[in-house]
């Protein structure tokens, strides 16, 4: 830092740097004063803040006592962040807080809302304190606002990141719920698909099915998509490709349980229906598969 400064001076632009330095010193002095003020009025401001939170009906999933405890911690971290200018501790606290409150259904707007309320409460207290000295008030706000905005930003980003982490984790869990390839008769496989198919899952399904055809030496495969409400054109195309690839391995594919939406998608993307063998429901599909394999089911008399 020192070195960089002197180098710049040699280059002949010392004035703006000196001004910057002076300004930053003044800012830190103002921040110190600000922090002292916030420490002094900690109890009062914290209560005021909690009252504003309840008034705005935020954090309704939490009890008053919990809100008060969290508010105390947030307040202290907030003041510490203002004092030190470093945000790591606050970031860690925000992440920790998010981890605790996300499972309880606290929404993003509530978290952003309470941080902004704290900012407002503190700004109001500054107005009240410096109302006789406008110049001072301006200076204090100049120092306070950027720091406060950065804090609000840090907390909101921390919360959203934590949310996204949870979402990613859940996606991973869903992906790992493998779709079984089941053999119901000699050379007859069933692949029941349930839930949403994204391109990645579609790929995985195809791989599993083609491998299943090999290992079970299947001649007929019934893919049941009763449990799939809708699919986009990419996935529908992938389904058609799976049918074609299975044929290259010598297996016939019967698709059952197409919903009206999926039927529309398939027609819209212009699938060659000559390649697709479709039957209304799983039972019909298995019956047709049995016919193809030469089985005949007769009731025991």
């Amino acid at each position: 830092m020192q070195k960089a400064k002197s180098a710049t001076t040699e280059l002949g632009v010392p004035t703006s740097y000196a001004a910057d330095l002076e300004r930053s010193e003044r800012t830190s002095e103002l921040l110190r004063e600000l922090v002292a003020h916030l420490r002094q009025n900690r109890t009062l401001l914290r209560e005021e803040w909690v009252a504003r939170i309840s008034e705005a009906r935020l954090l309704t999933a939490m009890t008053q006592e919990e809100i008060f405890n969290e508010a105390t911690s947030v307040y202290d971290s907030y003041v510490a962040a203002l004092e030190t200018g470093t945000f790591e501790a606050l970031q860690a606290y925000a992440r920790n807080l998010s981890e605790r409150i996300i499972p309880r259904g606290v929404e993003t707007h509530e978290v952003v809302g309470i941080v902004l309320l704290l900012r407002d409460v503190l700004a109001r207290s500054l107005f009240a304190k410096y109302q006789t000295d406008f110049k001072k008030l301006n200076q204090i706000l100049d120092a306070y606002e950027p720091a406060a905005n950065r804090i609000a930003n840090t907390v909101a980003v921390g919360f959203v990141q934590e949310r996204e982490r949870v979402i990613r984790q859940q996606q991973e869990a869903i992906r790992e719920l493998s779709t079984p390839v089941l053999q119901v008769r000699e050379r007859l496989l069933i692949l029941p698909i349930i839930g949403v198919i994204d391109p990645q899952r579609a790929r995985q399904l195809t791989e599993q099915l083609l491998r299943g055809i090999r290992t079970n030496r299947a001649k007929v495969v019934v893919i049941d998509i009763t449990g799939v409400a809708a699919m986009d054109a990419t996935v529908a195309n992938h389904l058609v490709q799976t049918v074609e690839a299975s044929r290259l391995l010598g297996a016939t594919v019967i698709v059952t349980g197409l919903s009206p939406e999926i039927a529309q998608t398939l027609v819209t993307i212009g699938v060659d229906l000559g390649k697709m063998n479709t039957v209304g429901d799983l039972q019909g599909g298995i019956e047709q598969a049995e016919r193809l394999l030469g089985y005949k089911v007769v009731p025991v008399t």
Partner: peptide
Amino acid sequence: IQPEVAFAMVQ
């Protein structure tokens, strides 16, 4: 035809 080859061909 190998499974991987089959899918690559179809694509």
